[in-house]
Write a protein that binds this DNA or RNA. Structure first.
Lengths: 99, 99
DNA sequence: ACCTTTGTTCGTAATTTTACGAACAAAATG
DNA sequence: CATTTTGTTCGTAAAATTACGAACAAAGGT
């Protein structure tokens, strides 16, 4: 009854993405990026009532989960969805939710 | 820049569901329930290599997020998806992921 | 060169999550 | 009525999450 044998890789990947989506601020960022292709974190700092260090942490989590990526456009950083992983997330949730 | 004004209720609901889905064990349970309409937590205890108290905690979280519900069928408890909220989750993720 | 802008990292703190075993509760079964 | 089955709750501990401000780093503008 090894955990590796019971829970599939797909389930783990889906859970990983879900976890990253599991905070209102991160959900906000993802939804923004899925609607407008990219944004600067400065915009987010202005819009969201959280410290920039906190936002930075949330963006880092989204990056580590593979859902977004940042591109330096000095002195700013342009964030976009990571299209490949976004597609995977779409696929996994589609299957999972049967939609 | 009130948090309530920036982040929508939908985003908060979606994040709440995502958070509940954000653990492999809970993902496993949800996927099982979406595939077979119901199960007994005893079955889960046998399948999953975790303490029954831990499983109970995960089921409680899924219940509190509104994704599942338990029905007493003494001495067991039968778990099913909460169809209404599951539909809402489907809807929210469908919108969010654009699928 | 200096200053401003932009964003990360660090240090810290409070809270939440995850996990376990032991104890407990409820109810069926012998 | 004692025992077994089933699952929750409690106590505890370790780790992760969330949040902030201060300090720092990088690079563009003056």
């Amino acid at each position: 009854m090894n955990i590796e044998k019971v829970i599939t890789e797909k389930q783990k990947r889906a859970a990983r993405y879900a976890k990253a989506m599991g905070h209102p601020v991160r959900m906000y960022v993802l939804e923004l990026l899925s609607s407008q292709s990219c944004c600067y974190s400065g915009d987010l700092t202005e819009e969201l009532p959280i410290a920039k260090s906190t936002l930075s942490q949330h963006l880092k989590e989204l990056k580590e989960a593979g859902l977004i990526q940042g591109e330096i456009e000095a002195p700013k950083i342009k964030y976009c969805l990571n299209r490949e992983n976004w597609k995977e997330a779409q696929f996994l949730f589609k299957q999972f939710l049967r939609i």
